[in-house]
């Protein structure tokens, strides 16, 4: 009788120890938020959306001919013209429109996106009319996926995309757009 009681007591002790262990394991496990914080999502989305608009409104320095109010918009349009016809209206510090636009975008991205530790892909794409696929004019990347949506899979859990079309009226046919993707 006493032996049976001792065995039962042993079992009870084991059950109690397992329960205590479970409680400790569960209490040590921190509750982690399932979603990215609101501020991060808002910041990333705002950055992707506004970065290109502000970039294109920026007035480049040292460009000729000296036109009052010349903006990066004008360089973006002129860049497509230069790519198609080899003629560039504007030159900034000896560089053609495409090089100048890339240089401005790179300077700004390094001073902002790189500074804040963001992973991004900034690309300027021209889509000629017809069957031809999109052509990459330039690309500045710190490891984020390239411009094509097809190549972008769910490998990256969250990303923000900003895309600004460049009007090509009186320049050429086709479509051109500047795209910024910011990844986690």
């Amino acid at each position: 009788m006493r032996r049976a009681q001792i065995e039962i007591m042993g079992l009870v002790v084991v059950v109690i120890l397992v329960t205590i262990g479970l409680f400790f394991a569960l209490s040590l496990k921190r509750t982690t938020p399932t979603q990215k914080p609101v501020v991060d999502r808002f910041g990333q989305d705002t950055m992707a959306k506004d970065f290109l608009t502000v970039l294109l409104e920026t007035q480049p320095q040292g460009c000729s001919p000296s036109v009052s109010g010349l903006q990066a918009w004008d360089l973006a349009k002129d860049c497509v013209r230069y790519r198609n016809s080899g003629v560039s209206i504007y030159a900034c510090d000896g560089a053609n429109s495409c090089e100048a636009l890339k240089s401005i975008a790179k300077t700004i991205a390094e001073a902002t996106l790189d500074e804040y530790g963001m992973t991004y892909n900034l690309s300027y794409v021209y889509e000629p009319p017809g069957e031809e696929g999109p052509q990459l004019i330039f690309n500045i990347s710190t490891g984020c996926h390239p411009y094509s949506d097809a190549q972008f899979t769910s490998a990256q859990p969250y990303s923000s995309l900003g895309r600004t079309p460049i009007p090509l009226y009186r320049v050429t046919t086709g479509k051109a757009y500047l795209e910024l993707r910011i990844c986690d």
Binding site: V39, F42, T46, M47, F51, V54, L55, T112
Partner: peptide, 9 residues
């Protein structure tokens, strides 16, 4: 600190 960066002209 919680930081946000907003691009502006």
């Amino acid at each position: 600190t919680t930081a946000l960066h907003i691009p502006v002209s």
